[in-house]
Design a protein around this nucleic acid. Structure first.
Lengths: 143, 143
DNA sequence: ATAAATAAAGACAAAAATATCTTATATTAT
DNA sequence: ATAATATAAGATATTTTTGTCTTTATTTAT
């Protein structure tokens, strides 16, 4: 469904959000350990998220990543778009360059419906909400 | 969503089914041209489908691929499973090895719902039905 | 029988995704 | 100031996916 990079991104953000209530900074090492991801690969992903303004970071001792308490809700859609790109969520299910209601691929309608539901889900769920689930012990990020 | 290989597989099968009413054999060259795919890569995919008994083939002059008229309906799910594998449709949305209602990832429920809908769609739609859509001019396989 | 046509199979190449390692830069603490 | 710590950035390696090319095996038509 999503690339590994995107899965790491979502998990990293949920973990950061679950820990940055008091503006603590979360180190890469900690993130990678908690979400069970390759540290340097995760670093690359965090850089993208940081450049896009989805997460904040500070270098140096006691540095790390964090999400402001008053930051606007981060939709899963924002993350997927930042890492996997828009075409991942808009392209034709069978890979046609021009697939539309007017000139549809054979599964156009069926696929559009499911994708619509996926988009709705990605819009309705935010990193902060999911982080709360994690904090409440209702979910886990590894194993 | 699906790999390119899987998209090629679905398109190839739909095209074959749309043409093999009178047990004509469809050549690889023809398939690749009609679905706009790399011929030899498509060949590899067809070999998998052939070994799995999803499509039939004959070598030699006038040889090619075909689907028996009395063949059972081929569900899209059969094709996706054959090419992308089951884990593509059963794995955790965030990549956890063990993700269940008991120990769920943060998007377990939301993701399960959408995947369920996807599975239903893949079970309800068959290559033969989609081929009929193609034959009726209600759908296209390229551009 | 022979040649031609076609899928099957295998070897290889290119591209993309994932992963690792090293160096640079910024920040903090001493 | 200096050393330590952390992200940023860049280079490289590995793996997976996709794509190409060549050879083999099978079937048909002549």
């Amino acid at each position: 469904m999503f690339s590994k990079a995107c899965k790491y991104a979502i998990k990293a953000l949920i973990y950061i959000a679950s820990r940055s209530n008091d503006a603590t900074r979360i180190s890469l090492r900690d993130i990678a350990a908690k979400i069970d991801s390759p540290e340097h690969f995760t670093a690359k992903i965090m850089q993208v998220l940081s450049k896009q303004g989805i997460v904040s970071s500070i270098k140096g001792p006691n540095g790390g990543f964090y999400i402001e308490n008053d930051a606007p809700p981060i939709k899963l859609l924002d993350v997927v778009r930042a890492i996997d790109g828009v075409q991942h969520l808009s392209g034709c299910g069978l890979g046609l360059k021009e697939c539309s209601a007017h000139q549809p691929c054979p599964i156009h309608n069926e696929f559009s419906e499911i994708r619509g539901q996926m988009l709705t889900m990605l819009r309705e769920n935010t990193i902060q909400q999911l982080a709360a689930e994690l904090s409440a012990g209702h979910a886990v990020l590894k194993h």
